[in-house]
């Protein structure tokens, strides 16, 4: 008998000390059922946070655009003062804005699941609500923020006369395979990060460092050396490079490693969701009130 087994018609629910893995099919079914049952809740939470987010602000959604724009402005300034000497195949402002847009959203997606999980704590420690709903709504919000940031790219492309090549339709695929890495890290962070705040602190402070080891604000250099080796072997490099290439240069040079890493990450996402489901009652027990 599984830990929680629901007969839909009679609505009989059992809770026992047995491990849910004794009935792995039942576990998969109940994870799926949770998503079906909570889809409306996910949407309600998502719209609730969206409405509440900027209701007390004057600039409103402009706050979503400010972080990538300011990051890009700083790097443009450094470039114009010739402190940096970066050569790119496309106008540097376009290069850097695409890079920071994708990167900012990546960083947000890494922390979104844990942030969402913690935000729902006061509710799912008291009521029978699937905590995954809070995680999913936080992820949806991060994705929406990404889409809004993309809008700013349109005028930039026009100003710098960059015409997206025929590979542009691959952009969603490239972005999903890149973001899958963020989700895999973010979802596996929940069971550990909700118990020990070290995990959250690590994510907010150290994921940023990877920006310098990936082609976010400068391309993979031509000079060989340790730095180039690190950059090429960074699992984040293919995803971000391919995402940018498909809407600017049209190169598919990074497609295969990006897809491969994305696929592996998706498997980790699924395993992470199963693990979270098993850990759920133990997390709730330890999170207390």
């Amino acid at each position: 008998m599984s830990q929680s087994e629901i007969d839909r018609n009679g609505e009989v629910t059992c809770y026992s000390s047995a491990s849910p893995l004794r009935d792995s099919k039942g576990l998969l079914r109940s994870v799926w059922q949770d998503f079906v049952d909570t889809r409306e809740l996910i949407f309600t939470l998502f719209t609730r946070d969206l409405r509440a987010q900027f209701r007390q602000s004057i600039l409103g959604y402009i706050w979503l655009l400010l972080p990538p724009v300011t990051t890009a402005a700083v790097w443009l300034f450094l470039q114009s003062q010739r402190i940096l000497n970066v050569e790119t195949d496309i106008p540097y402002p376009v290069f850097i804005l695409v890079g920071t847009t994708v990167w900012t959203s990546f960083v947000n997606l890494v922390s979104a699941p844990l942030v969402g999980f913690n935000a729902g704590k006061s509710i799912y420690t008291k009521l029978n609500v699937a905590p995954e709903a809070f995680v999913m709504s936080a992820i949806l919000r991060a994705l929406l923020n990404f889409v809004i940031r993309l809008v700013i790219l349109v005028p930039v492309f026009i100003v710098f006369k960059v015409v997206p090549p025929s590979t542009w339709y691959l952009f969603p695929v490239a972005v999903v395979s890149f973001f899958a890495i963020a989700l895999a890290v973010g979802i596996w962070a929940i069971p550990f990060g909700s118990l020990f705040t070290d995990v959250g602190n690590f994510l907010t402070n150290f994921v940023k460092i990877f920006m310098y080891l990936a082609p976010v604000v400068y391309p993979v250099g031509k000079k060989t050396g340790l730095f180039k080796e690190l950059m090429i072997n960074n699992p984040l490099t293919p995803g971000i490079a391919w995402s940018r290439d498909v809407i600017t240069t049209g190169s598919n040079e990074w497609a295969v490693p990006a897809l491969l890493i994305g696929l592996i990450s998706l498997l980790f996402v699924l395993a992470g969701l199963l693990f979270l489901r098993i850990a759920r009652p133990h997390l709730v027990a330890r999170l207390g009130m």
Binding site: G10, V12, C14, S16, S17, H282
Partner: peptide
Amino acid sequence: NGLLKPDTGRVTMR
């Protein structure tokens, strides 16, 4: 309410 998993025994809610 199914928030905590019992360490022994079982609960059935209909």
